[in-house]
Design a protein around this nucleic acid. Sequence first.
DNA 1: CCCCGCGCTTGACGGGGATCAAGCGGAAAA
DNA 2: TTTTCCGCTTGATCCCCGTCAAGCGCGGGG
Lengths: 246, 246
Amino acid sequence: MTEPALATLTRLRTACSQCNLRELCLPVGLSADELETLDNLVSTRRKIRRGDSLFYGGEPFSALYAVRYGFFKSTLTSGDGREQVTGFYMAGELLGMDGIGGDRHTCTLTALEDSEVCVMPFARVEDLSREFEPLQRHFHKVLSREIVRDQGVMLLLGSMRAEERLAAFLVNLSQRLTARGFSASEFVLRMTRDEIGSYLGMKLETVSRLFSRFQEDHLIEVHQKHVRILDIGGLKRVMAQAQGAA
Amino acid sequence: MTEPALATLTRLRTACSQCNLRELCLPVGLSADELETLDNLVSTRRKIRRGDSLFYGGEPFSALYAVRYGFFKSTLTSGDGREQVTGFYMAGELLGMDGIGGDRHTCTLTALEDSEVCVMPFARVEDLSREFEPLQRHFHKVLSREIVRDQGVMLLLGSMRAEERLAAFLVNLSQRLTARGFSASEFVLRMTRDEIGSYLGMKLETVSRLFSRFQEDHLIEVHQKHVRILDIGGLKRVMAQAQGAA
DNA sequence: CCCCGCGCTTGACGGGGATCAAGCGGAAAA
DNA sequence: TTTTCCGCTTGATCCCCGTCAAGCGCGGGG
């Protein structure tokens, strides 16, 4: 079966099977053959400039998004205007799953640097999931992992002290960057102290003070947004210092 | 097509279409016809005595569970032995979704009173989801709502003060009990102060003190595990008293 | 029936982190 | 290049809630 040349180009340009993120993104674990089935999962790509939002809380839900490059934060706004950062997302991670349950997005996704996402219309995700068992299985895993991730943050917020939380945050960031081929020990924070603080349930001054203390303790070197991890083992020790362990 | 009488009995006994929770549970929103398709979703039922666990963190994952009656808590244990209550579950709510992503459960589910669950082998859930679009759609919604719920708890833990958190907890409990036909204003807590405190990121003494203060303020009457809500509007006001609202 | 123990309440005190405040410095714009 | 502003750092102080401690009361078992 043939298709117009332009359509072929478009399909190939957005094809999962050609994407260098296929080891991280939705198709992870699928064979090359299976991968081709996904090649019409992505309808288009969309660029979002730093500071702009991919979607806002309250907007109708229609698609999931995979980060191709860039960096996002998700924020939740409570009835009384409080804002909480609920997550940070980088290449290969999936956005928008909060919207499935109520047909509207509950959180706002904002780019912290110029970014690009693959747009996957949700109806298409569900259609393909029904036809193609490996995709269904994998999609369920991705949803479940988001639940587990959120529960991990609950553990962090509910039972750890500020310095433990920040250490855990740095270790997690380092691990995710490593998985993407970046340096595990040196990186540039894309978010402000205020955003880190919101995510970790503390004030920006506390974040700043703790960065300084970690530096004094030779765990990290920090200069504004540049962070170098000097002693990852030390950070892990800080993060596990359950003093009031139940 | 006929089936042995015993099989018919078993099927009917565990049939979603006959269950008085069908308005709350997985089948919500399905028509009577559609419901019958689900009647072989549930393989068996399982009773769990107060204090016993349905599954433990680390155990292999094989099935999802729907609470038929009773009350559960889910707990997460971190590497260093800290324990955090990540949720409370009552009739009609789904358990075990944390296990899908890694083929093992990450949290432990413990009955806080004698309880019964419907066992839904996950392979069967996925098979039926592929054949039956309304189930697929609904199952995705349930997963997504769990994500949204968890993010709500993150907001609570990350940006609210202790009294706001406890008020939010009481309002939420009241609403869920109302949806199940129980009194909105009078109920018996199934969990201890310690468990409430763990869930809300505070110590049991703080929970106790706040209960006492709410009582002084004529918001509730509390006597051990018996709680009567006197002023739900007042509780909602406490919960929204964003003083440090960003 | 009484006793025992667990879970709850309440008080006193201290500390971790919030709040208020001032000044710095780097990045982006002119 | 200079200017400007936002984000970061650091200090001083305060207070919410954790910690430690003591005692109560209900429910279960002997």
